[in-house]
Design a protein around this nucleic acid. Structure first.
Length: 559
DNA sequence: GTAGGGTTAG
């Protein structure tokens, strides 16, 4: 049956809108073969498919088709062309299309496509310049302009620009659009200004699911896991049903806290909602179980995934590595390569750290070489710190030092810190002092390093050294931060610094009371008492149901 | 019938 031209267009549009891009391009080719001429309603979808599939050559050809068919350069078509070139990384070609059609490009849509294109290609300056031009030329600015522009402000240090854009939104009355609000929220979170993000979140007149997700994931990315859990509970209480995006953020926070019970609860939720086959969620679950120490469960989920991405592999490899099962981690890494997955930088971090934890020095060094020579990956400071750790633990301290000195990128605190840690193990005071000097330049307030050096002085009986470190800490007004406890109790969640806990315990006058029961339980009970005092549970502190304690897990971490 | 956009894992 021969199709008419409009039918071809409809089919093409439907496929592209369902993200079935290869099929859409097939249809385009069939259409040409059947003798139907493409028109201005055909090209936008063919161009979009090309961009989605990263086919620069086909994209260029399509542009030629457009010119050949003599389609009038109307804004819809121009916008599609500009957007395609931007997505394929050729901003210059996009700019050319834009400039060659000056008369039509007065239109907002064309500007929007190019502004977001510059942003997409990390050309912040050009994006802002074009945005300014829009204002000068009196081109209408709408919400979509802002959505395209704001991502350029979402990097640490660009808060000022972001706030200027926010101010602009307010002036134009665009900040009340939910999508714009969400975008600004994400921008603040990505700048690391989580306080601003929260303030804006609280002010936003209309919050949608995406708003909650943006705030939850903003907290998650800034490492504020407790806030994530709290906000998630608040979200449920406000009647919003989570979607996979929400739960990914929540799970990553469970992983960071070692909140096993809560994580299991989230898994049940995932199953109940029918999100079970979402690969993002499976990866987040693997990560959560692995970091909580439940390697079996992590492995089961990993094995059950029909399609495993490099992220899935990295999560399971990292899990084994973290718990000292370096051999399994290395085997899995090799399996991954055999299965045709190309490892990326993060995958190498997981295998390198597995090797260093398990003492597999030679394998680790081999992977470090393979990474550069075979995969052409430039090692970052995170790789160097693994390798320094690897060499250092093996006692090859001077090789580690040489490696640091040969680095192409600037070493960060973790790199020198790894050397310092190794020096402590092998009691090399001279090198430790050098590493300490470097690491303190980079992270002057990280108390861990002072403690490490002080411990080494203690090990070697160097009293003068100990006093020196203490003086330095006093001069810089550094105090050893007390460790923090994370506690789960019947699905509720608590955190509290040890010092605070003791103060609170004294004010309750019940510390000794509980110590009689079981000293290790004290750290669990005090936060619960606090919770009861603040919250709705009006029980007396002594009326806690101790049968619930088997449900608790805790992990002590120190900052 | 067409274009530009916001939240997601290791």
């Amino acid at each position: 049956m021969k199709r008419q031209q409009p039918q071809w267009n409809t089919l093409l549009r439907e496929l592209a809108n369902k993200s079935l891009f290869p099929d859409a391009l097939q249809v385009y080719l069939q259409m040409l073969r059947s003798g139907s001429a493409p028109n201005a309603f055909t090209f936008p979808f063919a161009l979009k498919s090309c961009a989605a599939l990263s086919l620069p050559f086909t994209g260029k050809q399509l542009h030629c088709h457009v010119l050949k068919t003599g389609c009038s350069p109307e804004p819809f078509l121009l916008t599609s062309l500009i957007s395609m070139y931007c997505r394929l990384g050729s901003v210059e070609s996009a700019r050319q299309v834009f400039d060659e059609n000056r008369h039509s490009s007065k239109l907002t849509v064309c500007y929007n496509a190019l502004v977001s294109g510059y942003a997409l290609n990390s050309r912040a300056k050009d994006a802002v310049l074009l945005f300014r031009q829009m204002r000068e030329f009196g081109v209408a600015i709408n919400g979509v302009t802002i959505l395209g522009l704001v991502p350029v402000c979402g990097v640490p240090g660009s808060l000022e620009l972001g706030m200027a854009v926010h101010g602009c939104c307010v002036k134009l009355g665009l900040d009340v659009e939910t999508a714009v609000g969400n975008c600004l929220l994400t921008m603040y979170a990505k700048c690391g200004e989580i306080g601003c993000a929260r303030k804006w979140f609280d002010e936003m007149p209309r919050k949608g699911l995406i708003t909650w997700n943006a705030m939850i994931n903003g907290y998650a990315q800034n490492g504020l896991a407790n806030e994530v859990i709290q906000l998630y509970m608040q979200m449920e209480a406000s009647g919003f049903r989570p979607d996979p995006v929400t739960l990914v953020g929540v799970l990553s926070s469970c992983a960071n806290l070692g909140a096993h019970t809560f994580g299991k609860e989230v898994e049940r939720r995932i199953e109940a909602c029918g999100f079970g086959y979402n690969p993002f969620l499976s990866n987040a679950l693997i990560n959560m179980y692995a970091r909580c120490g439940n390697l079996k469960k992590a492995r089961d989920i990993f094995n059950g995934m029909p399609v495993k991405s490099v992220v899935s592999w990295t999560a399971i490899i990292g899990g084994y590595g973290m718990h000292g099962q370096g051999k399994t981690a290395v085997e899995l890494f090799d399996d991954m390569i055999r299965s045709g997955i190309r490892p990326d930088g993060a995958a190498f971090v997981s295998v390198l750290s597995a090797c260093s934890h398990a003492g597999l020095t030679d394998s680790g060094l081999n992977y470090f070489e393979v990474m550069q020579k075979q995969y052409g990956l430039q090692p970052g400071p995170e790789h160097y710190s693994c390798v320094v750790d690897l060499l250092g633990r093996a006692g090859r301290l001077y090789e580690a030092q040489k490696l640091i000195e040969s680095m192409q990128v600037k070493p960060d605190g973790a790199v020198w810190g790894a050397l310092l840690g190794a020096c402590r193990i092998h009691r090399n005071l001279e090198l430790a002092e050098l590493a300490f000097e470097r690491v303190i330049e980079l992270e002057p307030t990280n108390i861990g390093y002072y403690v490490l050096l002080s411990n080494l002085y203690t090990d070697t009986g160097n009293k003068e050294g100990i006093i020196n470190v203490r003086m330095m800490m006093r001069e810089r007004k550094l105090r050893k931060d007390p460790g923090c406890s994370y506690v789960e109790f019947k699905g509720a969640f608590f955190t509290m610094s040890r010092m605070k806990r003791e103060e609170e315990a004294k004010s309750w006058g019940c510390l000794t009371e509980f110590q009689k029961i079981r000293p290790s339980v004290v750290s669990f009970i005090i936060p619960i008492l606090l919770h009861q005092r603040k919250g709705k549970l009006k029980e007396k502190p002594y009326g806690i149901d101790f049968r619930g304690f088997h449900e608790m897990r805790s992990c002590e971490t120190s900052k």
